[in-house]
Amino acid sequence: MKEQDEALFPMPARSAEPLRAAVQRLDPAEAVRFEQEFHAAWETALLEDSTVPMKTFLYRWGVFVALHRIPSRSARLRELEREVGSAASLEEARIAGKEIEELLEVAAREAASA
């Protein structure tokens, strides 16, 4: 995977406010989903008396930000998703899927280190 352009901004800390601001900057439509999922995770955390729902929520959105804060990475992900959706064979879909997996692994490492 080549990243031919720079990140739009540094990887934010894995907490609600920095991620909220990053998601809003990257994709205002996704910011709506962020808010919905934030409230659902918060409610579940309270009901279950557990931090796991919030940690899972923050990790997931950290991966989203890591994927999309670098324009070439975000564009490549969209291209690969189209390739999987229009693949003429299972092998074509697997090849594109493998590259998606690699993108997700990189983003997951970035999110985990934030």
Rank of each mutant, 00 (worst) to 15 (best):
M1T: 10
K2D: 11
K2T: 12
Q4M: 06
D5C: 00
A7P: 06
A7K: 04
L8N: 06
L8V: 05
F9K: 09
M11N: 04
P12I: 07
P12F: 03
R14N: 05
S15Q: 13
E17F: 08
E17A: 14
L19P: 02
L19G: 04
L19K: 04
A22E: 06
A22V: 09
V23E: 01
Q24P: 02
R25V: 01
L26S: 06
L26D: 04
P28H: 08
P28Q: 12
P28D: 10
P28F: 03
A29P: 00
A31C: 12
F34L: 10
F34H: 08
E35Q: 13
Q36Y: 05
E37F: 07
F38H: 15
F38M: 12
F38S: 08
H39Q: 15
A40K: 15
A41G: 10
A41T: 09
A41E: 09
W42G: 05
W42Q: 14
E43S: 14
A45N: 09
L46F: 10
L46D: 10
E48H: 08
S50M: 07
T51Q: 14
V52F: 13
K55Q: 15
T56E: 15
T56F: 06
F57H: 12
L58A: 01
L58H: 05
Y59P: 01
Y59I: 02
R60K: 14
W61P: 04
G62P: 07
G62F: 10
G62M: 11
V63P: 04
F64P: 03
F64M: 06
F64E: 01
V65S: 02
V65Y: 00
L67H: 00
H68S: 00
R69P: 02
I70L: 01
I70H: 00
I70Q: 02
I70A: 04
P71W: 00
S72N: 00
S72L: 01
S74Q: 03
R76H: 02
R82F: 07
R82P: 04
E83M: 10
E83P: 01
G85V: 04
G85A: 14
S86E: 15
S86L: 14
A87Y: 09
A87W: 09
S89W: 05
L90T: 13
L90G: 10
L90W: 13
L90D: 12
E91T: 14
E91W: 03
E92A: 15
R94D: 12
R94K: 13
I95N: 02
A96N: 05
A96Y: 06
A96I: 07
A96L: 07
K98P: 02
K98H: 14
E99R: 11
E99S: 06
E101Y: 12
L104N: 12
L104C: 01
E105A: 13
E105I: 00
E105R: 14
V106N: 00
A107E: 04
A107Y: 06
A107T: 06
A108N: 03
R109E: 14
R109N: 08
S113D: 12
S113E: 14
A114M: 08
A114T: 14
